[in-house]
Design a protein around this nucleic acid. Structure first.
Lengths: 332, 332
DNA sequence: CTGTTAGCGCATTCAG
DNA sequence: CTGAATGCGCTAACAG
């Protein structure tokens, strides 16, 4: 049990006062070179490590940043966590990661637990539209990825980014397009759909004869598979789509699977495009064309805001980027 | 700016002393019912939240557990982090996640940073064999997943578990088998290979005419794809394998993809088996047969050890379990 | 420029 | 059984 070496020990060893040691530690105050030298030597010799708890007690917040996501296992969030951790660590801060398990009730519990650690800031990816906890006024909270009511949010412009997908399909010559939207109970589901609809309107106004059919699904493989099967077997008329746009990659992958089962060639007969660019997107066959959410940009912007202590409350919305791979092709 | 409500405010509001409040908070000391009642009411009314920093200052350690992994983006580690977070959170502790980016030098930095937070314990998945930092004697450190010299380790028996994969392939009738090993600079890479080799020896001694070819790759998709391509186009002779065993799932998925590109049917013409059982394994087509590392069991055992404050220093080695899915089949 | 000192919020002595 | 007092390690305000 090595007795923990404190600032006082260092002071004694360097034959200065604790105040001086504290000052060289925070390196802002001017301490004369020779003294600082002695102190640094003492620090090294004793292997002194500052006690964050004590520091936090005074500073009212600790060099820790909290991250609360719906599911850390989701590749999108683990990439986000990775970036944030790197950025935080570069500024001497640690990242507490916490998961709401996609449950608002649980989210509230986790949020309050996080709060008690008095982190410098909490980054929240809301599990749903409804927030079951109160925002603290002592700790800064930012929304991440998804729009969060009442929170300054860092994410992508869901509408404009989703529009990119439709634009791409139309550019490739597709006119019979189906959009498989996400649940309209989620804000991302709604916004992406709005973006697609707005884009369709704009295209039509520009004189393009676009036929867009919108279906609502859930954000998973199964949903994509089921809806694609219905749409592609199309007894409903001659309107078999040549392009399918999905609200996320999982849906798109489900579509591709359904197409394969039905012996419809992707991209030969059907172009498919996803959203997010999860790792899996470039792993499936054919590799999925998708709209990539720029995780790096989002993470950097959020961290910058935390450390800049800016007062401006403007949201930061990055644009998605089209990743053209092998599931889309010019219309035959 | 809500002034933070302290134990003192609660005491004043309940008209008792801070000592009493502290005692009801730690609920071990006996405080008479009526008084305790009053205190609890005051706590609720004022919305009092304990200050962890202050608590930590006295207790010498905070209700935080540190996790240091090579790459949080790796699905295996993010699943591990997820389990650990759940377990920790259930016991009122938070999880600080930190990444060594597969770099020993960086790992040392991160470890020391973690240490300064005085976590209750640090769980370390070593980035490599060499540890570039000193173990503290004030904080308990456990190794996770991989054997870590000098550390009590919680993980799976890599050798025995890897052997399971080869056994399965041979049981299915495969005799031309390629093992794509992980980097031999990593301890898991070496141990899994040793297990496979030992199993091969045992099988041969049992009179089985096994032809095992071992290649060394890295733990990623690309590596699997490249090596599989080389091995399957096999101009090196007539020894085209009918079974490929991979050191992890990513490699195996790369193999499957290469096979598909080469129009080799999996599992019809080629059986492929992975290791780890990451989520992706059951999402790819065909679903991957693999050796599952029991993440839950490992995570639970480690957490139990942390909270049990056991003195016994025995390692905890679980066995991998074969998950038979659709990428393996009896040899044609 | 550097030493001294007063708390930060809490748990834990020691009195009563 | 409960109140008062002490100090955890550190920073910042104040003296010198």
């Amino acid at each position: 049990m090595a007795k923990t070496v404190t600032i006082k020990d260092v002071a004694a060893h360097a034959e200065v006062s604790v105040g001086t040691v504290s000052r060289v530690l925070s390196k802002n105050s001017t301490v004369k070179a020779p003294l600082a030298e002695r102190v640094n030597k003492a620090i090294a010799e004793l292997g002194y490590k500052p006690n964050f708890a004590a520091r936090a007690l005074r500073a009212k917040h600790i060099n820790v940043i909290g991250l609360l996501v719906p599911d850390i296992t989701n590749p999108f969030f683990s990439q986000l966590a990775d970036k944030l951790e790197g950025l935080a660590s570069a500024r001497g801060h640690a990242l507490i990661v916490s998961s709401s398990r996609n449950d608002s009730r649980f989210e509230a519990r986790q949020f309050n637990a996080l709060l008690e650690h008095q982190p410098k800031a909490i980054l929240l990816v809301p599990a749903s539209d409804q927030r079951l906890f109160d925002l603290p006024d002592s700790t800064v909270v930012y929304g991440l990825d998804r729009p969060a009511p009442g929170l300054r949010t860092f994410g992508v412009d869901q509408r404009a980014s989703a529009a990119l997908g439709l634009k791409h399909l139309v550019d490739l010559g597709h006119r019979q397009v189906v959009y498989i939207a996400g649940p309209q109970t989620t804000i991302t589901g709604r916004q992406r759909r709005e973006g697609v609809e707005a884009q369709a309107r704009a295209l039509r106004e520009a004189g393009i004869d676009l036929n867009l059919d919108i279906r609502e699904g859930t954000f998973d493989f199964q949903s994509g598979e089921t809806i694609a099967r219905a749409v592609l077997s199309g007894p409903s008329g001659g309107d078999v789509p040549t392009g399918i746009l999905a609200a996320n990659d999982q849906i798109a992958i489900g579509v591709v699977r359904a197409a394969r089962d039905m012996r419809i060639d992707v991209p030969g007969e059907l172009s498919v495009i996803g959203f997010d660019d999860i790792d899996l997107a470039s792993l499936v066959v054919p590799r999925l064309t998708t709209i990539r959410q720029p995780v790096d940009a989002i993470a950097s912007a959020a961290m910058d805001a935390i450390f800049a202590e800016e007062t401006e409350a403007a949201d930061h919305l990055a644009m998605g980027r089209l990743c053209e791979r092998q599931s889309t092709q010019v219309r035959a």
